[in-house]
Design a protein around this nucleic acid. Sequence first.
DNA 1: TCTTTTAGATG
DNA 2: CTGTATGCG
DNA 3: CATCTAAAAGACCGCATACAG
Length: 349
Amino acid sequence: MPPKRAAASKRKLEEDSESEVDAATSKFASDASDSDAPSTSKPKAKKAKTTKAPKAAKPKPAKAAKPINDQPTNKTLPDEIQFPAKNEGCVRIATWNICGLAAAQKKGFKHYMEAEDADVLILTETKVNNDPVDPMLTNRYPHRYWSISDKKTYSGTAILSKIKPLSVDYTLPGHPDPKSIKGRIVTLEFESLYLIGTYVVNAGTGLKTLDAKNEWNKHFTTYIRDLDRKKPVIWGGDLNVAPTEIDLANPKTNWNKTPGYTEAETRAFAEILTPPEKEGAKPMIDTWRKMHPETRHYTYFSYRFNCREKGLGWRLDTCKFFIFVIWHSLILISLFLLVVGILLWWNMR
DNA sequence: TCTTTTAGATG
DNA sequence: CTGTATGCG
DNA sequence: CATCTAAAAGACCGCATACAG
């Protein structure tokens, strides 16, 4: 895959990521697509910025100039960002882990927001401590729902919408430690569907919080299936899991070692998408993967080790949705149209 | 993620 | 305001 | 004891905070 595109900036802050979905029909119907912000890099080698611990003072290779390739950096957004035009009557849903709203705004969050002009925007790792009142956000999105963690400047999930939801929920029902869930989930109920935005628990360095993540997965699975019995569900955000081996650059060396790609995490995720027979629940569709069955495309690049330039990334952020019998034909049709549109757009770039 | 250090197996 | 340190990812 | 190798340990980037001077 051509090096041309990459997610906007920040991902889990370690990175950035972003994905987008268009829902067809005026009321939030179906179908989706995903895309990322374009790139263009800034060859700026700004090195003397971090005040690093003194320590044994290491030589520091003075990395000069900087390789000029067309990869973006994690420190700034491209100056020019373009997205496919929105289809008339479609609702565009996008998600982006911004790793700090304040930092993202300094990097050019506004340019992304204007270029994408999503109708519904899911933001994760906002790290805000109060509901932002910036006109830049409030003018475009009259309806804003911020889930804020108890822990200062930690996690944080928000959904900004041009469409007024019927109801809003910030909880994960059944979870034994509700405080730990604050800042991680926002559910909006619309007339025809539910939209869930999540910043899923990170399994932690050395997998030290894998237990907490398993707890989340257990209750989230129940929750999403309960909602599914009532209305179609679209789920997006930082899902903090690389679903399969083609969703990260180095599957072998990371398997069961690095958070986001362990047996427990991938299995839990797979069971959300494809419930075991006995449960009788309906499957979900990984929309981006559905449209690009074999493409290796990542939404996150670690800040460390110049992973972005090297293309060493993970696909952790995306949107999924449930299929319902009633919606079946509509989804197939709109999905087909969307795929055609995306392919055309992709090839023309 | 990548490099260096340490521990451990082998002969 | 600068520097150092910690937590988190 | 010398040598190879596999596992463990650091260092690594960046955001945000707290605190010392």
